[in-house]
Write a protein that binds this DNA or RNA. Structure first.
Lengths: 151, 151
DNA sequence: CTTGAAAAGAACTGCCT
DNA sequence: AGGCAGTTCTTTTCAAG
């Protein structure tokens, strides 16, 4: 962990929205000189606060019009079941996110497809072929908003 | 929509993992010259394939050790209910993601907190104060893996 | 699409307040 | 800590083949 002042928080917020901002541009935005902003970024990087700069894709522009969240409950709960499931699910390209969770479900999957017929194909031929799946719940994404978090 | 060749797909895959890659570095990785890679990137950008370059934060390094997914079902389903809920949920900084979905739930929330006691505070004072909440399901994140998607 | 070169901008360094 | 001024490096951008 690391302790942040308000300037660090503002800096992280700005970078979380647009990771292409240069140290100079950030400084202007925060009322700091370029080297001052740069030193703060470096310090945060070295503290391990940044996990990486990722490119967010527009799935609709790529022809992937359907996003479905699946809640998976495994039928068999042995030690091997988790590994089997995780290995098999990683071979499905339509699965964008695999979350291992504790609670109502064992796994939560984010699945994308071109359209509903395409999603049915993925569901029947891929998801339902996964080892040890007990029950499935589905939710279709209508809209989504992401925010930086508390800081 | 836009049609992509294999090189575009490889390019998107590489950028999705590390958005800091320059056109030159990408070209080397793909067997293209720097200007060729650069033109492809530009073309994809203009086609609206890229939604933005975001900085991924390490929530643990920021002292946010707990991530919980909440499935929310509204009790009141009028037109106004959705707007009221969305407005109120946006005022909670601990809510990182708001997904409006169709199916078992009406909304899915990704909530972060420092620890379990802190999460209980958020749950009791913030989430349960949201207007129109009928039922709540919770899942605690153990681990997570993200992948680029089918392309 | 490639090579090569010029121009722009960003990262990094010392030194000083 | 922050600012200033400067160097060095990378990246963008524009030639021409």
């Amino acid at each position: 962990m690391i302790d942040l002042d308000d300037t660090d928080r503002a800096l992280i917020r700005a970078l979380a929205e647009d990771a292409t901002l240069s140290a100079g541009a950030l400084g202007r935005q925060l009322g700091l000189s370029q080297p001052a902003a740069w030193r703060r970024i470096k310090r945060l990087e070295e503290a391990g606060v940044f996990r990486g700069r990722r490119l967010e894709l527009d799935t609709a522009a790529l022809g992937l019009g359907v996003t479905v969240f699946l809640g998976v409950k495994l039928a068999t709960k042995g030690r091997a079941s988790l590994g089997d499931f995780e290995r098999a699910v990683q071979a499905i390209p339509e699965v964008q996110t695999v979350e291992h969770v504790l609670g109502m479900y064992d796994y939560r999957l984010r699945v994308v497809a071109r359209d509903i017929p395409d999603f049915e194909r993925v569901l029947r031929r891929r998801i339902m072929a996964l080892p040890g799946v007990g029950s499935l719940d589905a939710n279709v994404l209508l809209s989504e908003e992401r925010r930086p978090g508390p800081l």
